[in-house]
């Protein structure tokens, strides 16, 4: 089957660099990379002309509430790089801690990633090293510094979220 061939191919490409490559759905592959191996993985995919960068997603994963008397764990964020070839989607996943929220820019390999990286910077407060443009993409110029809307801790400027029951 066509899809299986594509999946096998990307499996082979990514296994050498990624700590874990799993097939999470019939058409989706997830590959764990680290901040150090991210660029290598992206380069492998681009050199082999496997797919194109479809989106970069940021995820905020605050540490769960600690048990009684325990220290709270460290908050993390995850950045997902989605590459698509035909029906198959391969996602490279990088986890970074709040304390050192830095990832390298992939714009050297994939120039069109710049807009997605700008969004990461302003929405999550992640530093993307080497990205060509760090202007705000979506937020206004007078947005308060240090406020990152897509982090879970941000809940709007004293505007109560809509609560609907049974709708």
């Amino acid at each position: 089957m066509e899809m299986e061939k594509i999946i096998d191919r990307v499996d082979d490409l990514l296994k050498p660099v990624c700590s874990q490559v799993t097939q999470v759905a019939s058409f989706r592959i997830d590959a764990e990379v680290t901040v150090e191996t991210l660029l290598d993985a992206v380069k492998i995919l681009t050199d082999a002309r496997w797919g194109y960068l479809t989106a970069i997603t940021g995820l905020d994963k605050p540490a769960p509430a600690p048990a009684e008397g325990e220290q709270p764990g460290e908050n993390h964020m995850e950045v997902l790089y989605h590459f698509c070839e035909g029906p198959v989607v391969a996602t490279l996943r990088v986890t970074i801690p709040y304390s050192h929220a830095v990832i390298p820019s992939i714009c050297g390999i994939v120039p069109m990633a710049t807009l997605y990286e700008r969004e990461l910077i302003e929405m999550f407060g992640i530093t993307v090293e080497g990205t060509p443009n760090t202007d705000k993409l979506l937020l206004p110029d007078d947005w308060p510094v240090g406020v990152f809307p897509m982090r879970k801790e941000f809940t709007g400027f004293a505007i109560k979220p809509v609560e609907g029951e049974g709708e």
Partner: peptide
């Protein structure tokens, strides 16, 4: 060349996190 988008930025992605799946 570069763009500044955001004039129509309404914060929808954040808004979806407080609405249920149907809303």
């Amino acid at each position: 060349a570069s763009i500044r988008l955001g004039f129509v930025h309404r914060g929808i992605e954040k808004g979806t996190e407080v609405r249920n799946w149907t809303q």
